[in-house]
């Protein structure tokens, strides 16, 4: 019998190739008039340890190294975070509609950010600005609230899902009320809600990296358990699985990484829902393949979408959520048509 549950080399190579392509396009393209070839050469020289290119001046250098490169890395990490969180939620809830915003985290983050914007309260913490702190607190608060309601209703995946839906509905209503009362801030709030990847350098990247690495490792370690959960709970247990521990670890990690990611990028929908399904439909339905390839695929997809969002109407910038849905939805619809009941 052929090897099962292993990362198919072709799919891995395609993902890595696309990741490099998205990195190059993200760094070479943009509103600033730097010739793409020169940017590429500069990066290549830098890679080889040479920092001298007469055609790249100090401003260009800052644009490439302090703006485009961290933006690519941040976009990649946010996309990867949302995609692994989506895959994790789909695994534990056995629900193809599950996404990183399932347990009310998006609504909580939205309310937190809205409150910070309208009250102008100063919550900045080290390098992290007030809106990010507000969004993080809101997201974690919403998930804790959903988990508490669910615990009183028997702590099943279905009760947690329904508690998340109820929490999200309530928090969204609160947020809408606050926006109605503070219409002067609506533009700023919407800008955050639709999502953006504006960075102030490497700070955001360094904030997200430890959370991403820890959560990715833990979710990957539990991917074998997620495969067992595709059976019934009794079967999973009888084969040596530990469903309860899997629920706790995967839900906690997925929520944490989502909360940190959206606090930095705003609410970017679609990536967490669709990328795991694309891997599932085109490569494998095993979570041991879906988790790592979703990280690569989600990161690549979001950084490509970001490049589109800031070049298509340059020097203006489209909200990235518009691009992810605009590019992703038709492609996903096409795959869904081919799937014939495989989801």
């Amino acid at each position: 019998m052929d090897k099962v549950f292993t990362l198919p080399k072709t799919a891995l190579l395609i993902c890595i190739f696309l990741m490099i392509l998205s990195g190059i396009s993200s760094i070479c393209l943009g509103a600033a008039p730097i010739p793409p070839i020169e940017s590429l050469k500069y990066l290549f020289d830098l890679f080889l340890g040479q920092n001298q290119n007469p055609r790249i001046n100090e401003i260009d250098r800052i644009i490439i190294l302090e703006w485009r490169l961290p933006r690519f890395v941040l976009g990649f990490l946010v996309g990867a975070s949302l995609a692994i969180a989506g895959a994790g939620f789909q695994g534990v809830f056995k629900n193809p509609l599950a996404d990183p915003f399932l347990l009310g985290s998006a609504a909580g983050a939205g309310l937190g950010a809205t409150l910070v914007i309208v009250t102008s309260v100063n919550l900045s913490f080290g390098f992290v600005d007030s809106i990010q702190v507000g969004a993080f607190i809101g997201a974690m608060g919403a998930v804790l609230c959903a988990a508490t309601i669910s615990a009183s209703a028997g702590r099943t995946p279905a009760s947690l899902l329904l508690a998340g839906v109820a929490t999200a509905a309530f928090l969204t209503a609160c947020q809408t009320y606050i926006m109605q009362r503070n219409f002067l801030s609506i533009q700023e709030i919407f800008g955050w809600l639709i999502g953006r990847l504006l960075t102030s350098g490497w700070t955001e990247v360094l904030t997200l990296i430890p959370y991403f690495l820890i959560c990715f490792t833990l979710i990957y370690v539990f991917s074998k358990e997620l495969d067992l959960l595709r059976l019934s709970e009794d079967e999973s247990k009888s084969l040596g699985g530990n469903p309860t521990l899997t629920y706790i670890v995967v839900i906690t990690c997925s929520t944490l990484v989502t909360a940190v990611a959206v606090s930095l990028s705003g609410l970017i929908a679609f990536v967490g829902l669709v990328i795991p399904h694309i891997i599932r439909l085109t490569v494998s339905s095993s979570y041991r393949v879906i988790i790592p390839l979703s990280a690569l695929g989600g990161g690549t997809f979001l950084s490509l979408a970001d490049t589109f969002s800031r070049t298509i109407i340059a020097p203006g910038e489209l909200p990235i959520g518009v691009i992810t849905a605009f590019l992703g939805a038709p492609f996903f619809a096409f795959l869904l048509r081919l799937s014939r009941g495989a989801i």
Binding site: R230, S232, E235, R280, S285, A342
Partner: peptide, 10 residues
Amino acid sequence: PQNFSIPVGM
């Protein structure tokens, strides 16, 4: 078990 699961895509 009597009602074992038949996982989609496996």
